[in-house]
């Protein structure tokens, strides 16, 4: 029943995952002295940029973004503006949440904000792509009966995986192992990335496995 959509989803996810891969490999070739640990922020921004660009492009091409009611240019522009605003606000939101969780407030603010940008591009951006700039809709999606389509379920899974990954990533920080990946925010961003990739793989698989149970109300 959902085969077509699942296939589309799997290929979308494959594209996004490969973009993550490319964003890691390409700078390693072109930028001298690049490493995921050493020049972590470079990796972080390259990955978030790649994910942002690829997801926007793919979701726009697929046409999953909810149809706009008006087709005027002004309306579209305001939508775009609101999306950008939400993106930025979400960065701030993640930043403050991460600080509340115990990240240093002043010392490594840039690192913390970069992590917030990564988290935003992995979670909020997808919400923007799938649901459009509407916080109400975002909140409603994350409830048991909130998913209206396969894409909503997929969104739930990937966002949850990313957030849980970042959360788990904070665990090794206090340990006294002195590894390069324990430096703030390497473990968290790696955790978020691994969680995101898991979500990309897991979401189509889960939906495929549970496709009999899934029923969606029409909008």
């Amino acid at each position: 029943m959902w085969d077509h959509e699942i296939r589309a989803m799997a290929s979308t996810h494959a594209i996004i995952a490969s973009s993550v891969f490319m964003a890691t490999v390409l700078p390693a070739v072109f930028v001298p002295g690049f490493s995921v640990y050493g020049t972590h922020l470079v990796w972080l921004y390259s990955v978030s940029g790649a994910v942002t660009a690829v997801s926007v492009a793919v979701f726009w091409l697929l046409g999953i973004t909810p149809p706009t009611k008006k087709h005027t240019l002004g309306y579209k522009l305001s939508r775009l503006f609101r999306s950008c605003l939400y993106f930025f606000l979400s960065c701030l939101f993640f930043h403050s949440v991460v600080v509340l969780y115990g990240a240093p407030l002043i010392e490594s603010a840039l690192e913390t904000f970069s992590l917030a940008v990564l988290l935003t591009s992995l979670t909020t951006l997808r919400c923007l792509c799938v649901l459009g700039p509407s916080v109400q809709a975002w909140i409603r999606v994350f409830s048991r009966h909130g998913a209206m389509s396969v894409w909503d379920t997929c969104l739930q899974i990937t966002v949850a995986c990313t957030v849980v990954g970042a959360w788990l990533g904070a665990f090794p920080i206090p340990l006294d192992w002195d590894r390069p990946w324990q430096v703030w925010p390497v473990s968290c961003s790696l955790g978020a990335m691994i969680g995101f990739l898991t979500g990309l793989v897991g979401a189509p698989a889960w939906i495929h496995y549970h496709r009999k149970q899934l029923t969606y109300k029409s909008k």
Binding site: R140, F142, S143, R144, H145, G146
Partner: peptide, 8 residues
């Protein structure tokens, strides 16, 4: 709570 649909 939101997951249970009780927040909104």
């Amino acid at each position: 709570l939101n997951w249970k649909g009780l927040l909104l």
